[in-house]
C-alpha cells in the first residue's frame, strides 16, 4: 500500500477524505483484494453500529460509490452555467459519497430512534439520562410558567453527541492523564492536556 493511499484510507476512516482521496481508495479497492477485505471489515463495524446487523454488508460498497462518482458530469463538456454550479455539484457528490462510504453519524442517529432527550426528561424534572447540558437544542425547555415542556428543536443527534464527547473529554481526561503520565515517555506532560486540573 502506498503512503498516499494509506493517507487516503486513513482520511476516509477519520471522516476527513476529500473527493480525490475517495476516488483513490475506490480505485485501489478495485485492484487489491486484501484492502477490500479490510474495507469490508470496517464496513461491517459501521453497519453493526446502525443495529442493522452485519448480514447485508456483503454489498460491495465500492461499486455504489463509483456509480455516484461516475454520474458526475465532465468539466470538459460543461457549459459556463454548469461550470459555475460545479463547485456545489461536486460538493454534493462528495458529500453523498461520504455518507454512503464513510459513516454518516446522522444516519445512525435517526435509526431506531427513541428520543432520549424527550418530553419525559424535562417534565419529570429528572436529569437527562446522559448528563446532557441544556445548551444543546435537543433538550426541551419549559415554556414560561406553563406545565407543558416545549421541545425547542429536534437538533441533530450528531450535535448532541458531539457535545457529549466534549463533556466526556473534560470529565475523563484527568483520569486518563494519571495513566498516560506513567505509561508514555512524556513524564507529567499529559496533565498539560487536561482542560482544568481538579485537586
Amino acid at each position: 500500500m502506498s503512503e498516499r493511499l494509506r493517507e487516503s484510507l486513513s482520511a476516509m476512516l477519520d471522516d476527513e477524505a476529500n473527493e480525490l482521496e475517495i476516488q483513490r481508495v475506490i480505485k485501489a479497492l478495485d485492484q487489491d483484494p486484501e484492502l477490500r477485505e479490510t474495507w469490508r471489515r470496517y464496513q461491517a463495524i459501521r453497519t453493526a453500529v446502525t443495529d442493522h446487523g452485519v448480514s447485508h454488508l456483503q454489498l460491495d460498497i465500492s461499486s455504489r460509490v463509483r456509480e455516484a462518482l461516475d454520474s458526475q458530469e465532465s468539466p470538459a463538456v460543461a457549459s459556463l452555467g454548469q461550470r459555475l454550479r460545479k463547485p456545489f455539484a461536486s460538493f454534493a457528490v462528495a458529500a453523498s459519497v461520504a455518507a454512503t462510504v464513510v459513516i454518516g453519524g446522522q444516519q445512525l442517529a435517526t435509526l431506531d430512534a427513541e428520543d432520549p432527550y424527550g418530553v419525559e426528561t424535562a417534565s419529570s424534572g429528572g436529569v437527562s439520562p446522559v448528563g446532557l447540558i441544556n445548551s444543546v437544542g435537543a433538550v426541551p425547555v419549559r415554556a414560561s410558567f406553563g406545565t407543558q415542556p416545549v421541545p425547542v428543536t429536534q437538533a441533530s443527534a450528531r450535535n448532541a453527541y458531539e457535545e457529549l464527547a466534549r463533556q466526556r473529554m473534560q470529565l475523563y481526561l484527568q483520569e486518563h492523564a494519571e495513566h498516560a503520565a506513567l505509561n508514555s515517555p512524556d513524564g507529567l506532560i499529559p496533565f498539560a492536556r487536561v482542560p482544568e486540573i481538579q485537586e
Binding site: 471522516d15 453500529v49 446502525t50 443495529d51 459513516i103 453519524g105 445512525l108 442517529a109 435509526l111 431506531d112 430512534a113 427513541e114 428520543d115 432520549p116 439520562p129 446522559v130 443527534a157 450528531r158 448532541a160 453527541y161 458531539e162 457535545e163 457529549l164 464527547a165 466534549r166 466526556r168 473529554m169 475523563y172 481526561l173 492536556r193
Partner: peptide
Amino acid sequence: IRPGEGVVRSGSTTS
C-alpha cells in the same frame, strides 16, 4: 438512547 457517535479532538487527544 438514540444510537449515535460524537467526536471531539484537541491536539493529539481524541474523545
